[in-house]
Design a protein around this nucleic acid. Structure first.
Length: 418
RNA sequence: GGAGAGAUGGCAGAGCGGACGAUUGCGUCAGUCUUGAAAACUGUUGAGGCUUCACGGCCUCCGGGGGUUCGAAUCCCCCUCUCUCCGCCA
């Protein structure tokens, strides 16, 4: 949810919202509706106060006075119900307008559609085209999608042998790295209630991307962000314990509706994958530094794995509702000769915290915290970038040095039996 | 999965239709006493919102949502969660 006070008074904030593509009319309507709402609340509460006072008086009046007083109170109560009804109508309108206004884009975000992104940095040499990770994965017996299809349908995979070792190696390595940056590891629930999905901002927009558990009113998370965002719901944190940094590990489930025919081979886009996610509850004064810090960690991870990459700042209309600014880190994918997203990080400022009601105590009263999130390592995707960028002429794959101690010392993955 | 019990302020725990936003104890904070501390005593102590220059006033909140009533922590319905016993299980 947006900050209404700021929307009314802060020009830059308002422009940031407009940059995301909301109509001016919606903002103006919201503001006028909010005025109407305050009036209706005051009117209703005054009437309620009257009704309360009358009811209280009845308790202490004599038996003969009661009937007349009860009748008078009934009348006031009726008036109250009418006011309540019209208030409910205004509230409803107000909330639907509130939902239509996204978190304003930060002033440093380039305006425009998806392709209006800004490249921040480009690191490493672009690896020449070779076998796709799908081919090489099947050849080396690391990934089996054919049998997975038979078992579960398309977009599922068996990750096997050295790749399975690397999966756990990556997780361990990343958790160690994040530990040194002050992140506490958390294994989150993967199934959550509908309410959580709404509060985390995934419903209703992404409802068709989410698996529902039949019979239990639970949904499988598409990212541990959902579970981490809810960790401090309705809590007042103290300013000096911030920032709280979490490294969430979970399996993630995505229906990938509407992506028919896209990235069908291999591990790039699958229904189920494991991911280590960074999630930070930050002091509002520091959240932008925190975003840079997260981006720095992401660059560190990708560099140490020896992957060529670039970082882009996403354009305003490419941002989700909650996001004020987002960096995508895109690694080089040799088989497609282009950069593809490997991680991303966002600052939600107070947008999500307002909905979750996560605040901190200060002398000036309660203040909402800022929340940020970023991928530390999406395992499947990271593996495939490693496969493609580190494949050798003889068809083998060199394991990045940093990972070797975490994978039982495997340095090169060779075809079975060679 | 079966059977039962419960959810009230930081915690414990009363209240079962009108003087209850809530007895009391512990804890908190302040004071008295003390060289200081402890003990004892006295007082203090929930949250959110609206309004006011301010003093203050008002509204909402007793797990969540609905209902009955002039009036609900208290009565009725639905939901969620917790605990105990049995079963099952990693």
């Amino acid at each position: 949810m947006i900050d209404l006070t700021k929307l009314k008074s802060d020009e830059e904030y308002r422009n940031g919202a407009l940059a995301k593509g909301v109509a001016v009319d919606v903002i103006d309507e919201l503001i006028s509706c909010s005025v109407e709402r305050s009036g209706a609340i005051q009117e209703t509460e005054a009437k309620r106060s009257e009704a309360n006072a009358m009811a209280k008086e009845i308790g202490s009046s004599s038996a003969e006075d009661r009937p007349a007083k009860i009748e008078a109170a009934s009348k006031v109560k009726q008036e109250l119900s009418q006011l309540e009804e019209s208030l409910a109508e205004v509230e409803k309108r107000f909330h639907s307008l509130m939902l239509q206004v996204p978190n304003p884009a930060h002033s440093s975000v380039p305006h425009g559609d998806e392709d209006a992104f800004r490249t921040e940095t480009e690191v490493g040499e672009q690896t020449p085209a070779r076998k796709s990770h799908g081919e090489i994965g099947e050849e080396l017996g690391l990934v089996d999608t054919k049998r997975a299809v038979r078992m579960s349908g398309s977009r599922f995979a068996y990750v096997m042998r050295e790749a399975a070792r690397m999966q756990f190696g990556l997780v361990q390595w990343v958790l160690d790295k994040l530990d040194s940056h002050g992140f506490d590891p958390v294994v989150t629930p993967v199934a959550v209630r509908e309410e959580m999905m709404e509060l985390a901002g995934f419903f209703p927009t992404d409802k068709n991307q989410v698996y529902k558990l039949e019979g239990d009113d639970l949904y499988l998370i598409g990212t541990s962000e959902v579970a981490l965002a809810g960790l401090h719901r309705q809590e007042q944190l103290s300013a000096d314990e911030l920032p709280l940094r979490y490294a969430g590990y979970s399996s993630c489930f995505r229906r990938e509706a509407g992506t028919y025919g896209k990235d069908t081979a291999g591990l790039f886009r699958v229904h189920q994958f494991d991911k280590v996610e960074m999630f930070v509850y930050a002091h509002p004064d520091n959240s932008w530094e925190e975003l840079e810090r997260i981006r720095g960690i992401q660059e560190e991870i990708v560099s140490e794995l020896g992957l060529p990459y670039r970082v882009i700042t996403c354009a305003s209309r490419d941002l989700g509702d909650a996001t004020s600014k987002k960096y995508d880190l895109e690694a080089w994918l040799p088989s497609e000769q282009r950069y593809r997203e490997i991680t991303s990080c966002s600052n939600y400022t107070d947008f999500s915290a307002r909905r979750m009601n996560t605040s901190m105590k200060t002398e000036a009263g309660n203040q909402l915290v800022h929340t940020l999130n970023g991928t530390a390592c999406a395992i499947g995707r990271t593996l495939l970038f490693i496969f493609e960028n580190h494949q050798n002429d003889d068809g083998s794959i060199t394991v990045p040095e940093v990972l070797r101690p975490y994978c039982g010392g495997i340095d090169v993955i060779r075809p079975k039996g060679s």
